[in-house]
Design a protein around this nucleic acid. Sequence first.
DNA 1: CTACAAGCTGGAGTGCACTCCAGCTCAAGC
DNA 2: GCTTGAGCTGGAGTGCACTCCAGCTTGTAG
Lengths: 122, 122
Amino acid sequence: MLIGDVAKQSGLTVDTLRYYEKIGLIAPPMRNDGGRRVYGDDVLGWIRFLEQLNATGMKQADRIRYAALRRRGDETLTERREMLELHRKTVAAKLALMQDTLALMDRKVAAYHDMERKAKGH
Amino acid sequence: MLIGDVAKQSGLTVDTLRYYEKIGLIAPPMRNDGGRRVYGDDVLGWIRFLEQLNATGMKQADRIRYAALRRRGDETLTERREMLELHRKTVAAKLALMQDTLALMDRKVAAYHDMERKAKGH
DNA sequence: CTACAAGCTGGAGTGCACTCCAGCTCAAGC
DNA sequence: GCTTGAGCTGGAGTGCACTCCAGCTTGTAG
């Protein structure tokens, strides 16, 4: 898999993939004879997970820290678990807030509907 | 209420409040004899709502658009309702994604726990 | 053998959302 | 009446997370 294929399948751009490598989010892949990056299929799953951490609001610095731990292998399992447990808390809080906001928007939408109906009615 | 009080009660900084006014998120308040901003209590509720839109991922440009509509009064009710209904959809989607990620993290945490137990066990 | 698409590096540029600063005025306490 | 804290304006600076570019090399199709 060359970088363009990874881009297509992951939805990231080639620039972003090289940038992620530079900052340590993705491990430097093997190179072929021409010096080009050759990725294994596993990178796609990893990118998907990174995106999920991203979408749940984990900061770049923490994702980099997690990625670094992951590259060090099984000896970092505990640390990674602790990071996930911590992040889980913040995600749960954010989730609750979003649910509140959803409910608030529903109330507002209903109220606006009501006011529109009344405005029409005279 | 002077700007410092609003800052204290809303959690925003005075700089951010003036910035929000500049970009149109908050309507320019009255001024006292000394030329200082004097806010009504209602601004606090409005800021809280802005924060919720923010926290649910609405972009600045859209919040500005919503704020502009709000300032124009009741004639914009329908537009505002439509904006909220649209945003509601994206929030609901994000919510689902976050719930997935939460579940994924729980599975990972459990798996890591398992591996830590096994590693200890020999 | 010649286009030309895709990849490479190092570094500069971008957009967003603030955040800070200089140099000033205003208000309240001693 | 002087000090000190809060507020004012216009504009510059910051941090994050990319995004783009110049100038080069490599690989494939006609």
